[in-house]
Design a protein around this nucleic acid. Structure first.
Length: 477
RNA sequence: CGAGGUGUGGCUAAGUUUGGUAUAGCGCUGCGUUCGGGACGCAGAGGUCGCAGGUUCAAAUCCUGUCACCUCGACCA
């Protein structure tokens, strides 16, 4: 009983206080630490390793679609940021400015990039001249700074890591194709690797990116029923091209403006992963993204042969990322520790097992135990991890579906949004006034107009006028 | 920026009302015994009580000022 008490003291149960649970997991699983820089966190090895795995997998997928990586400066002169009106208005409230260099005041202040559209545009205007120069499909991995007032680990920090892809194309069709292609790529990645089911759709004008013609998004539902935008892909049309003068000569010798896109995926999605899969013992990592997939805990490790056997098993599991925990902590301590850190599979090996030529494997998500013969440990582990990955996705999808409701009229809408955490599907007339009213009345926002439209009713859930779109609504992070 | 709250070893706190040797638990170091769900014994290390003034024989404690951080709102990946 005393042991149980200690366990619950470590992490606040999510039923009690989801926000506190989330913070506890981030800190106690050693994903991040608060730093002495307000609003910025330190990525500790586990947190950064997750990001590295995300980056490696995404980068590989990008490159398969023709993406090339570049790196642009982190400073943007004010005059450059000012060139696209909507864009600068969208970002102005949250940029950090550099006003001095060395001992001298700068002639023009520069911001630390909050996003790099303007820099890419400034660059593209110099290197794009002919239709032969197109398309350019560039991406950069970097950090950006947005001077947020309220911050939370992963979800909102003043500096965060991301990738930002910026492309230029000859035609509007090609740009649109790329925008959707990258959204699909993000969605597949989230579902296959992070085991997070997502809704693909288009943002309303109110919610779209500052300066974009259209913004596409993938939206996920967290365990507490809040929505989280997990990646976005924007089609800029030729708006930025006109502001920055990015023109090329076409095959028939006409001067044309390029069409552009940008798309981004951030460390925020690590927060999504925590909030979709985690439980009261801590983090639960999908096997395909876990930095350590299998941890081997020797029992009575000082006894002759036990550690050797543990390392022997690790060697047999060479196809996976395996760690033998031979620290001098007690086995019980190790169990709790690795559960907190979300290691998908634990293998226990002790003298009794060695006698029987077996080991015990325990799944992190269900705590299901398996007796595995040492002769087929690699095949069995592969099977369990595969099953776990699939089960995690299925569970998350089931949770989302069970927390997705439909509303036909405003009373029903308000009732659901205020009492049942989750998505609400409802029709919308297309007028921003209704979005504003809904937000004022309920704090819910339009998450997206899903590609898979459904007909729920003929009229807008808010004003009763003829409906144009079915919208996913929800309270968002 | 608006409203609340908190600053005492690495962490969590007690002590502040009523001034009088700086406390506890966890963690950390060493040695030994343990080991199938957060083990135990013994011995140690570690703090100018957020900062600056002031009152006093004496300040973590009282007074003045200041800084930092947290939570909740409005804004946002």
């Amino acid at each position: 009983m005393a042991d149980d008490k200690k366990l619950v003291e470590e992490i606040t149960p999510m039923e009690e206080d989801f926000t506190q649970w989330y913070t506890d997991v981030c800190i106690k699983a050693e994903l991040v630490s608060y730093s002495s820089i307000r609003g910025c966190t330190v990525f500790r090895p586990l947190g950064y390793a997750i990001w590295e795995n995300i980056r490696n997998e995404l980068d590989m997928r990008f490159k398969q679609t023709g993406v090339e990586n570049v790196y642009l400066p982190m400073f943007i002169p004010e005059s450059l940021l000012d060139k696209e009106k909507e864009h600068v208005e969208g970002f102005a409230p949250e940029v950090a400015w550099v006003t001095e260099g060395g001992l001298n005041k700068l002639p023009e202040r520069m911001c630390v990039r909050p996003t790099s559209e303007t820099l890419f545009c400034d660059f593209y205007k110099d290197i794009v001249h002919s239709y032969r120069d197109l398309p350019k499909v560039y991406n950069q991995w970097c950090s950006v700074v947005r001077w947020e007032k309220n911050t939370r680990p992963f979800l909102r920090t003043r500096e965060f890591l991301w990738q930002e892809g910026h492309t230029v194309h000859a035609t509007a069709e090609e740009a649109e194709e790329r925008t959707v292609q990258m959204l699909d790529l993000y969605a597949d990645f989230c579902e296959q690797i992070l085991a997070i089911p997502v809704i693909k759709g288009k943002k309303t004008d109110k919610e779209k990116f500052a300066g974009a013609e259209a913004t596409y998004t993938i939206e996920a539902l967290m365990h507490d029923g809040h929505a989280l935008q997990s990646a976005t892909s924007h089609n800029f049309g030729d708006g930025f091209a006109r502001a920055f003068g990015i023109q090329y000569t076409s095959k028939d010798n006409k001067l044309e403006y390029v069409h552009q896109t940008s798309w981004g995926f951030t460390t925020r999605t690590i927060g999504a992963m925590i909030m979709v899969h985690g439980d009261n013992s801590g983090l639960v990592l999908p096997p395909r993204i876990a930095p350590v997939q299998v941890v081997i805990v020797p029992i009575r490790q000082n006894k002759e042969g036990v550690l050797d056997k543990a390392h022997e098993i690790a060697e047999k599991l060479g196809a996976f990322s395996v760690k033998v925990d031979d620290s001098d902590k007690s086995p019980g301590w190790k169990f709790a520790e690795h559960e907190m850190k979300g290691v998908p599979l634990r293998i226990e090996i002790g003298p009794k097992d060695i006698e029987n030529n077996k080991c015990v494997a325990v799944r992190r998500d269900t705590r299901e135990k398996y007796d595995i013969s040492l002769d087929e440990v690699d095949a069995e582990v592969a099977k369990i991890l595969e099953q776990m990955q699939n089960d995690m996705f299925d569970r998350a999808r089931k949770h989302r579906d069970e927390h997705t409701y439909t509303a036909k009229d405003y009373e029903e809408f308000k009732e659901i949004i205020n009492t049942k955490p989750g998505f609400v599907k409802a029709m919308w007339c297309g007028d921003q006034a209704c979005e504003d009213k809904i937000k004022a009345d309920t704090t819910a926002t339009s998450r997206c107009m899903p590609f898979k439209q459904e007909h729920i009713s003929d009229v807008c859930v808010c004003c009763g006028r003829p409906a144009k779109h079915m919208v996913f609504w929800g309270k968002a992070y």
